[in-house]
Structure formats: structure tokens, C-alpha cells
């Protein structure tokens, strides 16, 4: 443990209601300094509300926001050392790119020389310096996003908040920007909090992910943890498309629609769900542990792999692109016990 005050963010027991609608229910989270943290959930789950509460644009109904050991719950947005990249980017249309980025520094009355230096450096960092004299309407979506990020970062915030920053970009650009964002965050060491409904984006960018459903944090962990060991049905279905099997606990495993499956960990429930990712199911010609005799029902070629649908159970299986299958092929599937996840009831 070091004695220096941690520049971490603690979200303590935050509840937010709009009239009779509860947007957030007793949310507890801790974001560590220098972390790329993602709030992931479907639209309307409350993730943006949580981000706005952290930014100070919304007041929680109850609970506290603690930044670097200080309770900032009552501080307005103007007094928080937290900056936001808005979903629409919200660039000031009447100001040049340079003046947009300089906005926060000018608000705080930095000397002109310092403003010039900091703005130029930040624009340089985001490769937007040549565009500094343009107006926002002359930029493409991706360029606007860079300016919005520069405008927030130039203030050297403790935390950078990103509200679905990729939603206005096309798919190819999005993938590129995600990687860039990740690199930028590593280079600066600033804490980033990203709000997204795109599970792939969350997996690519994040150090840790908090999955939010209907105003509650369902699971929080590294991308690997959340993806491989979903806690419940919602997480299993929201991140990737896991196979969910209705199961009944029996001695040494569970009885399911595809037959008996042995597990490494006995479930606590008598009846519930077990999940397995399509890519973990192995396809062979011989019976093995947790072997299921299956017939190929449907084949989808995706370039990098095949997605097969099997009966029984309409099991989805992902295989590499070298194997050739035909509809009606009889195969043996192996569902390795280590990859079978017991979901909470």
C-alpha cells in the first residue's frame, strides 16, 4: 500500500429516481486511478445517468461520489476536475477548432501563452493540429470526435468521461477508433470511463467492465472474467451469444436437454441454467467427456469461422474455417466441464 492519496473514484450507494421511475438502484462501484473502466448495458439501463452524475450534470437522489478521498456529490459540473466527451460531441459551432479546445482553459483564465501551448500540444497529440483554424462543421465525424476528446483532455482531468463516443461513426472507423482510444489512455495514464451498449467495444477497450441491467450493476470485472464467467443469464446473453441450457442438479453434474453433463462445480440450485460459449464446444468424431451426439442443422460462413447450429438443443457451435461440414452430418460434440458456467438463479 502506498500512502499517497489514491486518485480513485468511489461511487457509493447511488440511487437516482425521475418521478416514479428509478434509473439507478443502489449502485456501488470503485474505479481505480489510470483505469479504463466501461459501463456496459442496453439503452435505458441507466449507464448514461450514472455518467452524468459523475460529471455533475445530474444530482443523485441519494448516495455519494468520492473523488480522491473528497466527497464531490454536491459540487456542480463547473467545479469538478472531470471532463466529458459528449455523444453528439457538442462542439461550439461558432468557435474554431482551436478555440473549442481552448474553451476550458479560457474559462479558468489561463495565461494566453499557456493556452496556446497546451491547446497546440493536445491537438498535436490527437493529430488535429493542421485543422486548428477550421470550424466544426467542416470536419468529419471522426475528426469531430478527436476534437471533443482534445477539448476534454486539455484540461488534464482526473477522469475523462466518454458518453457513447462511437455511436456516430461507421463500423470500420469505430474499430479503428476503439484501438486508438485504448492506446491514448495507456499513454496518458488518465482514468477513462466509457459508456457503451456495444459489448465488442467494451471488451476491446476496457481494463474492467461493469455490466448494468435496469439500473443495477449485475457484474463487474475484467473483460475476461465477465465474458468467460457470466454471473447470470443477462450477462451471458448480452456479451456474445452463449448457449443456455435448462439444467436439473443430479449427482456429479446436471441433467439437461442434451443429456447428462458433468461440472467442475456443483450448482447451488436444484434447477437452473448452465451456459457455454459456442467457441468452446469442440467438434469431433469420437464420444468424449460430456459428449453429445448431434446433427448439423444449419451452417453460416463468417469468413473467419463457421457458425453451426446443432440438434439437439439448437446448440450453437463456432468452428474454424478449415473444417468442412454439410447439413445433416453426424458429429460428436464435447462440452468441456471447465467451460461450462453455472449461472446464478
Amino acid at each position: 500500500m502506498n500512502d499517497q492519496p489514491q486518485k480513485n473514484l468511489i461511487i457509493r450507494d447511488i440511487t437516482k429516481s425521475f418521478g416514479s421511475v428509478t434509473a439507478l438502484k443502489r449502485v456501488d462501484l470503485e474505479v481505480r486511478q489510470g483505469e479504463f473502466f466501461t459501463l456496459l448495458g442496453p439503452s435505458g439501463c441507466g449507464k448514461t445517468t450514472l455518467l452524468r452524475i459523475i460529471a455533475g450534470l445530474e444530482q443523485p437522489s441519494s448516495g455519494a461520489i468520492i473523488l480522491t478521498g473528497k466527497d464531490i456529490t454536491a459540487l456542480p459540473a463547473t467545479k469538478r476536475n472531470v471532463n466529458t466527451v459528449f455523444q453528439s460531441y457538442a462542439l461550439f459551432p461558432h468557435l474554431s477548432i482551436f478555440e473549442n479546445v481552448a474553451f476550458g482553459l479560457r474559462s479558468r483564465k489561463f495565461p494566453e501563452q499557456e493556452v496556446r501551448k497546451k491547446v497546440s500540444d493536445t491537438l498535436e497529440l490527437l493529430e488535429m493540429y493542421p485543422m486548428r483554424n477550421r470550424s466544426p462543421e467542416q470536419l468529419s465525424g471522426g475528426q469531430k470526435q478527436r476534437v471533443a476528446i482534445a477539448r476534454a483532455l486539455v484540461n488534464e482531468p482526473d477522469i475523462l468521461l466518454l458518453d457513447e463516443p462511437m455511436s456516430a461513426l461507421d463500423a470500420k472507423l469505430r474499430a479503428q477508433v476503439q484501438e486508438e482510444l485504448r492506446r491514448l489512455q495507456r499513454r496518458l495514464g488518465t482514468t477513462f470511463i466509457l459508456v457503451t451498449h456495444d459489448q465488442a467495444e467494451a471488451l476491446v477497450c476496457s481494463d474492467r467492465i461493469a455490466v448494468i441491467e435496469a439500473g443495477e450493476v449485475v457484474q463487474c470485472g475484467t473483460p475476461l472474467e465477465v465474458y468467460d464467467f457470466p454471473r447470470n443469464r443477462f450477462v451471458a446473453e448480452f456479451l456474445g451469444a452463449a448457449n443456455l441450457l435448462q439444467a436439473r442438479r443430479v449427482n456429479g453434474g446436471v441433467e439437461t436437454e442434451v443429456g447428462f453433463l458433468s461440472l467442475n462445480k456443483q450448482p447451488e440450485w436444484p434447477e437452473g441454467l448452465v451456459a457455454i460459449r459456442p467457441e468452446w464446444i469442440r467438434v469431433g468424431s469420437e464420444p468424449s467427456v460430456n459428449g453429445v451426439h448431434a446433427t448439423v442443422q444449419d451452417i453460416v460462413y463468417r469468413g473467419t469461422n463457421f457458425d453451426l447450429t446443432m440438434s439437439p438443443g439448437a446448440l450453437r457451435v463456432r468452428t474454424n474455417a478449415f473444417k468442412n461440414f454439410k447439413i445433416g452430418d453426424q458429429v460428436w460434440l464435447e462440452l468441456p466441464p471447465a467451460e461450462l458456467v453455472v449461472l446464478e438463479g
Binding site: A55, G56, L57, P76, A77, T78, K79, V82, N83, T84, F86, Q87, S88, A90, L91, F92, P93, H94, L95, F103, G104, S107, R108, R151, A152, N155
Partner: peptide, 23 residues
């Protein structure tokens, strides 16, 4: 969003009006 952006960027009430509302 422009008003919120100005607030997020430490603008005073006067500055919010002049830069985000008036234009």
C-alpha cells in the same frame, strides 16, 4: 448539450450564456 459542455468546461454563468446560449 452545448450548455452542458460549457458547464463541463468550467464556464461561468455569464460565459455559458455568451458562448452556448446566445449563439
Amino acid at each position: 448539450a452545448l450548455v452542458e459542455a460549457a458547464q463541463d468546461l468550467y464556464a461561468s454563468r455569464y460565459r455559458v450564456f455568451m458562448q452556448a446560449i446566445l449563439p
